[in-house]
């Protein structure tokens, strides 16, 4: 146990009574250097990263500059895919939809998760049940969740419009207006996708709940002694202290928003109403690759999505850096 670092003996733990047998077992073998040992431990993960992420990524990079349909051999066509993308109204719609969705859904999701965390972090009788309820939708499998909302959003017998038309006549709301046509009106369908995303915030909620609970009680007691209002406490205590976590979640959710709209747009709205009201980048890529067999084209769109992701991370990373010094020290 004299060696520093994570050598093989070090892994045996500090139990002396059991050490001799183990020691010999290890000592009989040639000693691995620490670096090799680390590499060995990392190997399963590295293999996964290489095979499942890096290789497909490299293939995508190459395919983006090729024409490929699974049948004929890929043909190098240079940047033609990107030129086509720029001219493609479907792609432009998808890009716009994805950005619009991120701009609305991400702040909404973070805000709701934050609000729920602030409401439910205390110990109270109903808080436990409410916490479970808040986290639950995230645990529902995505496709099942999508099918559920397909029913909820049904314009005729879906519960949402049933409620909205309560008290009205001839299928209108009580104010005499047509209820939202979730699946057939372009804007209503976009709203439907956003609404669906607002409930699957369980993980963010749990993270914010934990972060809120880590804040020192004294900070709030001090604020109470100084007669700070609820708004002052939120603005001057809670928000700044939780800003690093909130910023991190904003970044992460922006990146993920390009992806988690995929199943809803596929299952519930099928990218429509026509032509492309709820076609997001992810769905655009999926359709081009697996329905139209335009792999090169889809790969090019994937790269655009990747660039967007990187840009989002960079922008928000710069914002976060300002909060670096604000981290409460231990």
């Amino acid at each position: 146990m004299t060696r520093k670092g994570g050598g093989p003996e070090g892994l045996g733990g500090g139990t002396n009574y059991e050490a001799p047998r183990r020691h010999r077992w290890v000592a009989d073998r040639p000693r691995l250097s620490e670096r090799r040992w680390l590499l060995l431990m990392l190997a399963p993960f590295l293999v996964g990263v290489v095979v499942l992420v890096l290789v497909p990524f490299a293939v995508t990079m190459v395919l983006a500059f090729a024409d490929y349909d699974l049948v004929r051999a890929p043909r190098w066509i240079g940047p033609a895919n990107f030129v086509a993308l720029v001219r493609d109204p479907a792609f432009r719609a998808a890009l716009g939809n994805s950005l619009l969705f991120a701009a609305i859904a991400v702040p909404g999701r973070v805000l709701i998760a934050f609000g729920l965390a602030l409401l439910l972090h205390r110990r109270a009788r109903v808080a436990g049940t409410a916490r479970t309820a808040a986290a639950l939708p995230t645990a529902v499998p995505e496709v099942a969740y999508g099918l559920l909302f397909l029913w909820l959003f049904n314009p005729l017998y879906g519960p949402i419009n049933q409620i909205l038309t309560t008290g009205g006549t001839r299928g209108l709301t009580i104010f005499g207006r047509t209820p939202p046509q979730w699946l057939t009106d372009p804007q209503d369908a976009q709203a439907a996708i956003v609404i669906m995303s607002l409930f699957t915030i369980g993980e963010m909620f749990v993270i914010l709940l934990a972060a809120r609970r880590l804040l020192p009680r004294e900070a709030y007691e001090l604020a109470a002694i100084e007669d700070a209002t609820t708004w002052d406490v939120l603005r001057r205590v809670t928000l700044p202290l939780m800003a690093p976590v909130l910023a991190l979640l904003l970044i992460r959710d922006t990146v993920q928003s390009f992806q988690y709209s995929f199943v809803p747009t596929l299952v519930v709205t099928e990218g429509g109403p026509p032509p492309y009201a709820t076609t997001h980048l992810s769905l655009f890529i999926y359709r081009n690759a697996f329905e139209y067999l335009r792999y090169g084209y889809a790969a090019a769109a994937t790269l655009v999505m990747l660039a967007l992701t990187v840009a989002a991370v960079l922008v928000q990373w710069r914002l976060i850096r300002r909060y670096r010094s604000l981290r409460p020290e231990g």
Binding site: E218, A219, I225, P240, L241, L326
Partner: peptide, 13 residues
Amino acid sequence: VSMVFQSFALFPH
């Protein structure tokens, strides 16, 4: 009243 806490409770930000 005003209070000085054991942890000082200073706001890091």
